[in-house]
Structures are given as structure tokens and as C-alpha cells.
């Protein structure tokens, strides 16, 4: 499988805090990677560097082979990014927001692209509504719609299901699974059930570094002496200091 997203020894320090400490991984086409970790582990910082918002202190990310630092515009053209909290311009209508994103991206057939994204994210009923009046769920779906508008090969979604009700979560996971067929997708999440529901592979990071990488079953096997371990138990075990020392 062709590698569409590659993180190459990413480092980022804020003051004295090493937020990201040499993360390397690659995601091939057709794979959904769950990016897990406790609060402050460096998930969002990593995603911001992949998306070209933050400049790493060292290392780089390549999107479809294009270095995000060397040719950011080309790399961003192949990337769909949903930032944490799905920020959007509140005074704009959903349709105006999507038209703006299509226009900045220079999409040749913006109307058809918007129609497709709206249908996939089920935004038809709120198209004329201003974003500041939307519920959290609709706001997140508007953010998702802009991320998939240009049919990117790589999707980076920071907590895409946060704040959604169970039905909306199901819809978004279904959408991610549908999109994954020929794309590389990274989703960061706190919700461990998401790994079983939608991810082919999960990476757990802690204190800025990768502490586990594998399928859900491979992660469960990391808990010694337990055949029936849940992902929550594994997560707790490998993101505590003592456990990390055991693993090393």
C-alpha cells in the first residue's frame, strides 16, 4: 500500500516542556489510524504540525510525498483538516462557509463539491443557518464538510466525534469508514470505543512520544497475563509511568 502520510521525527518544545518528542509514523492509503493519548500527551500539537499550522523544532511531515515545510500550499491541497473544537466563522452561514473554503481551495466545480460534502455530512437542513446558531453536533459536521470538500487523499481529524450524540457519532464513524477506502486518515480521540468502531490501527502517545502502536487486538495483548483486557485498561496501564518502565 502506498504511504500517503508520513511523520518524520517530529519535535516540538514549548518553553521547557517537550510537547512532541521525536514522533515518527506512516499511514498508508486505506488505513484509519487512531491517535490516542492522555490530555497533554502531544496529540493536538502533532496534528497541528502535520497540518502546517505549527512549525516543528525538528523533523517534518510529508503528505502524499510533499514536505509540509518545503511546499506547504501543495501539501495542504492534499490534506483535509478538522481542528480541535471545529472552529468556524460564526457569522457565516454553513453554505457561505463551504463556498469560502471551496473558493480559497480554487475548486473548479465548487457547487458539486459542496453538494457532495453536504450530503455526506447530512447538513441539508441547516445550510442557510449561521454557524453561531448551530448545535455542537452540526458545527462539527460543518467542520467535517469543509475537511472533505476537496476529496483530499489525507484526512487529519482532531476529535471528530467529540460532543456528538450516539446517532451522530455513528454517522460520522460510518462516514470515516466510507472515506477510508482509498485515503489515509488520522483521528485523535479520547473515546477508546472509537478504536474498535472505526480504526484499523491505533497509536498511543504519552509525554510526546509513541508508547504503543498496533491493531486493537495487538494493544490488548500488551497487558501482561490478561486475555480479556479492555482497551481502557491497556490505555491506563501504558500511560502511567510505572507501566512504561515495565514495558521498557
Amino acid at each position: 500500500m502506498q504511504t500517503l502520510l508520513e511523520l518524520d521525527k517530529l519535535y516540538k518544545t514549548f518553553g521547557h516542556v517537550k510537547a512532541v518528542n521525536g514522533i515518527s509514523l506512516s499511514v498508508p492509503a486505506g488505513q484509519v489510524l487512531g491517535f490516542l493519548g492522555p490530555n497533554g500527551a502531544g496529540k493536538s500539537t502533532t496534528m497541528k504540525m502535520v497540518a502546517g499550522f505549527l512549525e516543528p523544532d525538528a523533523g517534518t511531515a510529508r503528505i502524499c510525498g510533499t514536505d509540509i515545510l518545503k511546499d506547504p500550499k501543495k501539501a495542504k491541497a492534499s490534506l483535509g483538516y478538522l481542528p480541535e473544537g471545529a472552529p468556524a466563522w460564526g457569522e457565516m452561514t454553513v453554505l457561505g462557509f463551504l463556498k469560502f473554503c471551496a473558493s480559497v481551495r480554487g475548486l473548479p466545480d465548487a457547487e458539486s463539491a459542496i453538494g457532495k460534502a453536504v450530503e455526506r455530512t447530512a447538513l441539508q437542513l441547516v445550510l442557510g443557518q449561521s454557524i453561531e446558531t448551530l448545535s455542537k453536533g452540526f458545527k462539527r459536521r460543518a467542520g467535517l464538510a469543509q475537511a472533505i470538500l476537496h476529496e483530499p487523499d489525507v484526512l487529519v481529524l482532531d476529535e471528530p466525534t467529540d460532543g456528538l450524540d450516539p446517532n451522530q457519532k455513528h454517522q460520522v464513524r460510518q462516514l470515516i469508514s466510507d472515506l477510508a477506502k482509498d485515503r489515509a486518515i488520522i483521528i485523535s480521540t479520547h473515546i477508546l470505543e472509537e478504536v474498535d468502531a472505526v480504526c484499523d490501527r491505533a497509536v498511543i502517545i504519552d509525554k510526546g512520544g509513541v508508547v504503543a502502536d498496533g491493531t486493537a487486538d495487538e494493544l490488548r495483548a500488551l497487558l501482561p497475563g490478561r486475555d480479556d483486557a479492555t482497551l481502557e485498561e491497556v490505555f491506563h496501564h501504558i500511560t502511567t509511568t510505572d507501566a512504561q518502565e515495565d514495558l521498557s
Partner: peptide, 11 residues
């Protein structure tokens, strides 16, 4: 509002 992150990650 955080929209700067969205704007600056567009091409």
C-alpha cells in the same frame, strides 16, 4: 475564536 487555525491550514 480559533479560526486562525482553520484559515492557516487551508492552502
Amino acid at each position: 475564536s480559533g479560526t486562525i487555525e482553520l484559515l492557516m491550514t487551508l492552502p
